[in-house]
């Protein structure tokens, strides 16, 4: 049984291995993949997904989700452009935008925790609302003339390596998120909340506060991503980052974070992010049509939702445990209390 248990938990290793295999194959067989410029493109384009995936992983582990992240990113980019046009100093604008992101996140969090609404529904609503506000703020303008040292930082590389400069702060954030999720009491309580919210509450865990905090942090990271996006692509428009939430969710699920909460590792999620990013990069290099790329991503999403479950199912069947946990074979119901 120990052997099968580890097998069940180790979907994240599978994803990590897949990523390495893909990279090795691409270096060997895909023209233009290995040069520094392409690699920096790959990483730079994946960074926005990776940044948001950090808090999203924690959120999904706790059993919630935030689909409004891309809109929050777009909104903070739009506000940044607007205020810059108004002549405000960029040093003031950026903190304001981040604050705005926190507010967006807290609005989601309050709707979920105070009114008890499902986060999927709430954030589909705010997905539309935040994007709408972004359009009202900036209209169809594109603001491009941000200060050069900021643009250079967001688009630049470390020395003449392939690493984008922004990758270093990301690593720091990744370390923070990993420690929070896997080593702190707070992170431990997130797993408990996701796997058994009522039992978590009975253990004195402040479930609502934890969720509110996570939504706030997600808003913060989304707006940080929005700021990065506008600088990285030197363009603040209301429709920046449209659709990014799907990539984030797909990547996080691919990385083995259980949609029902309570399971997964941050390492797996980030491996999922870069697997998806690398795959898209390779497909572009191979001139795969946009439609086919979408199909591949879709298939991957299905695999990502099924993969960990199938892996677990197999190990469960091995240990003969499935039968015991579900006396009635169809749709095991939860106890009614």
């Amino acid at each position: 049984m120990p052997e099968s248990l580890t097998r069940a938990v180790r979907w994240d290793t599978v994803v990590g291995a897949l990523l390495i295999v893909l990279l090795l194959l691409s270096f060997s067989f895909v023209d233009g993949f290995g040069n520094a410029l392409n690699l920096s493109f790959l990483i730079g384009n994946t960074l926005p997904i990776a940044l948001i995936a950090l808090p999203m992983t924690l959120l999904v582990v706790s059993g919630e989700i935030d689909l409004s992240v891309a809109s929050t990113a777009g909104l903070s980019g739009a506000v940044m452009g607007k205020l810059w046009n108004e002549g405000m100093a960029i040093e003031t604008i950026i903190p304001l935008c981040l604050l705005l992101g926190v507010v967006c996140g807290l609005v989601n969090g309050l709707l979920v925790t105070r009114l008890g609404l499902p986060s999927l529904a709430v954030t589909i609503g705010t997905l539309a609302a935040y994007r709408g506000i972004a359009q009202i703020v900036l209209g169809s303008d594109a603001v491009t003339d941000f200060p050069t040292q900021y643009l250079d930082f967001a688009a630049g590389r470390v020395g003449d390596s392939f690493l984008p400069q922004a990758f270093l702060p990301f690593l720091a954030l990744l370390a923070v998120a990993a420690v929070v999720l896997h080593a702190t009491p707070f992170g431990r309580s997130l797993f408990a909340i996701g796997a058994g919210e009522e039992a978590a509450r009975f253990a004195g865990i402040r479930v609502k506060r934890a969720k509110l905090l996570l939504f706030g942090a997600t808003g913060f990271m989304a707006s940080l991503t929005g700021v990065f996006w506008a600088l990285h692509y030197a363009s603040a428009r209301y429709d920046n980052a449209t659709g990014l939430e799907l990539s984030v969710v797909a990547a996080v699920l691919l990385g083995g974070i259980d949609f029902d909460g309570g399971k997964g590792t941050l390492g797996g999620a980030i491996a999922g992010v870069f697997l998806l990013g690398a795959l898209q990069n390779v497909m572009s290099l191979l001139n795969v049509s946009a439609q086919s790329q979408i199909v591949v991503t879709g298939v991957l999403l299905v695999v990502s939702v099924l993969g960990p479950r199938v892996a677990r199912q197999i190990s469960v069947a091995r240990a003969g445990r499935r039968a015991a946990s579900a006396p009635v074979p169809k749709a095991p119901p939860t106890p009614a209390a």
């Binding site: 431990r188 309580s189 797993f191 408990a192 796997a195 058994g196 009522e198 039992a199 978590a200 009975f202 253990a203 004195g204 865990i205 309570g262 399971k263 939860t334 106890p335 209390a337």
Partner: peptide, 17 residues
């Protein structure tokens, strides 16, 4: 439902408090 997080280990369930 209230006493245990069923999918968690014995160790971590006791650890929750």
């Amino acid at each position: 439902a209230q006493g245990l997080v069923m999918d968690m280990s014995i160790e971590r369930n006791i650890g929750l408090t």
